[in-house]
């Protein structure tokens, strides 16, 4: 039954070709360090799923943000789990992308012909850090408020443009409802859109070019 439907669909959309290109592609003999990218992807999916779920209850305004987060954590069934996965997931994410990057550096995998994969990866790293920075404010508790006060103040330190940067980040002089709203919008719209675009390019290139082998001594 399932096989019959799979064939029916394949005859029309050739999904097997796509499937084989992704999962049955030839790879060199590699080691466990080569799984760090997939591990990152797995956690990214976790962040997307739990993040979408959190928006069903979370309200990004100063009078509701904290209470809605408390409501999720203490009242909604499995809310503590969904929030916990999202909260701890981001730490795992940062650790994994950094390890993934170190593997690429140490094995020289950023070299020709994989420069574009590498640069898309660098921007993806910045996107992940952006996710962490904007998401940190959303619970709107003391830690979030003061961490963002400090973080935006650091962004305000460069000469000439610093003051403008700070006001763009905060949406004004001080941390306010405007800050919370733009951090939320960036966290759930701007960064996910950027991430999907870059991740698409990144994965396309990984599959199109193939992964690099472990370099030998004479390389």
């Amino acid at each position: 039954m399932v096989a019959k439907f799979a064939n029916w669909l394949d005859e029309r959309v050739s999904w097997r070709q796509v499937w084989d290109a992704i999962f049955l592609r030839k790879v060199p003999k590699v080691n466990w360090f080569y799984t760090l990218g997939s591990a990152t992807l797995f956690v990214a999916v976790n962040q997307a799923v739990t993040g979408i779920l959190l928006t069903l209850y979370y309200v990004p305004t100063p009078d509701h943000a904290y209470d809605s987060v408390q409501y999720i954590t203490t009242q909604v069934p499995a809310g503590w789990l969904i929030r916990g996965l999202h909260h701890w997931g981001v730490s795992a994410m940062v650790v994994l992308v950094v390890l993934h990057m170190l593997r690429v550096i140490f094995y020289g995998a950023y070299k020709y012909p994989r420069e574009v994969t590498w640069f898309s990866g660098i921007i993806l790293l910045l996107v992940v850090i952006g996710f962490g920075f904007t998401g940190y404010l959303l619970p709107w508790d003391q830690k979030a408020y003061w961490a963002t006060t400090v973080g935006t103040r650091i962004a305000g330190t460069p000469p000439l443009i610093g003051d403008y940067l700070l006001r763009i980040l905060r949406g004004g002089e001080d941390l306010s409802a405007v800050t919370l709203a733009r951090f939320f919008g960036t966290h759930v719209w701007v960064l996910p859109a950027t991430l999907m675009l870059l991740l698409g390019i990144h994965l396309y290139l990984v599959i199109r070019i193939g992964i690099s082998a472990v370099p030998k001594k004479e390389d």
Partner: peptide, 16 residues
């Protein structure tokens, strides 16, 4: 592991 908590999370107003 994702799906069951997600259903409880989304659908709980139905029985609470």
């Amino acid at each position: 592991g994702w799906g069951i908590p997600a259903i409880a999370y989304v659908a709980s107003p139905a029985w609470k």
